[in-house]
């Protein structure tokens, strides 16, 4: 096995990791750029008013993705009695929503919404998830470590994990049938839908169609295209006869793409990397210098004390010497006087 280009680049990247990649996170907290999706990228419009809950899309999805066959067959509609979410064995699920007010039942299909700026791809620390030019958010199992941070990050709770695989678990989710799109085929679910509740096309066109439907039948739809702006916009778009939070679609997600939530802390990285060493070295230098000055002052203080003591000693010694000299002189004088006196007395005698 030789060195592939990717591996080589990986090594080069790793070599530069301490400097460049930590310094330049692809976060644009302070910029006014807004990514509106790759031009001409695809999406799907799901008109829930047309969905009859037949689960044909689930069946098609299962077939084109070679997923394990479910415990209960797809024509068993009692499955709809309980709300479901996507799982490793089902990339899409249809849920049924009753209403107290006697309004008609609504069915809504749930799968990866293929965000324009996906939370999962932003969260993935090994780039196993990315937004493809087709519009699909695709996954590369050959890179995935299995940390499941994408599942934490996804605001729609879509990615699922193969918890029963001990050594080779994968993240599993809808990939918009990217491999079919590239062959010029429709996604499995769209192809099979008998009521045209699913429409595939360029996202920009789908948005226009959705708006036209709302304009044409204002009584049939709430005046909102879900996915136009939610979490920065998604490639899947939804129309609903009832407020979206009544069909288990959160309305409190906001319009910021998920990457905006983490761009702040990421932009703090260069500040810490650049400033901390300077500050800490400064603190070290100051404390060291303080110690040094304190040490010097101590030495000087000792020196002056010693010098003072010496001076004092010297003056005392001098005084003493002086005194002694004087005393000795006095003694000598006295002796001389005495001798003179004695001599005089002798002479007298």
């Amino acid at each position: 096995m030789g060195v592939t280009r990717r591996k080589f680049l990986g090594w080069v990247g790793a070599a530069a990791v301490g400097t460049t990649s930590m310094m330049v996170p692809k976060a644009r907290a302070a910029s006014n750029k807004h990514f509106e999706g790759y031009p001409g990228s695809f999406g799907v419009l799901h008109d829930t008013t047309r969905c009859i809950g037949c689960r044909k899309c689930e069946e098609a999805c299962n077939r084109v993705n070679d997923l394990p066959s479910p415990a209960r067959p797809f024509d068993d509609l009692t499955v709809l009695e309980n709300p479901r979410r996507t799982s490793a064995a089902a990339f899409t699920v249809v849920n049924r929503f009753e209403s107290d007010a006697g309004e008609p039942v609504v069915f809504a299909k749930n799968q990866c919404n293929h965000c324009l700026e996906p939370a999962c791809a932003s969260a993935c620390f090994v780039r196993a998830l990315r937004k493809d030019k087709t519009g699909a958010v695709v996954y590369d199992a050959s890179l995935c470590v299995g940390c499941r941070y994408c599942m934490v990050a996804c605001p729609f709770n879509i990615p699922a994990y193969e918890y029963d695989e001990p050594l080779t678990p994968r993240i599993r989710k809808c990939h918009l049938c990217q491999f079919r799109i590239e062959k010029g085929l429709l996604p499995g679910c769209v192809e099979t839908c008998p009521t045209e509740a699913l429409a595939f096309g360029e996202r920009d066109r789908l948005l226009k169609i959705a708006r036209q439907r709302i304009d044409k039948f204002p009584g049939r739809y709430v005046d909102h295209v879900y996915g136009e702006r939610e979490m920065g916009g998604t490639s899947w778009l939804y129309l609903s006869p009832r407020p979206f939070n009544q069909i288990a679609m959160r309305e409190d997600l906001g319009v910021q793409p998920a990457s905006r939530f983490t761009s702040g802390p990421l932009s703090a990285v260069p500040i810490v990397v650049g400033l901390w060493p300077v500050l800490l070295t400064g603190i070290y230098a100051i404390s060291k210098r303080k110690d040094k000055i304190a040490q010097q002052e101590r030495i000087e203080a000792v020196a002056t004390t010693v010098a003072d003591a010496n001076d004092e000693m010297k003056t005392k010694m001098a005084e003493l010497k002086d005194k002694m000299t004087r005393e000795r002189e006095a003694m000598i004088n006295l002796e001389i006087k005495k001798a003179l006196k004695e001599a005089a007395e002798k002479e007298d005698a």
Partner: peptide, 12 residues
Amino acid sequence: PIFLSPGTTSLL
């Protein structure tokens, strides 16, 4: 993530 395919947009 460190040596092969760094996902620098991720806090992880």
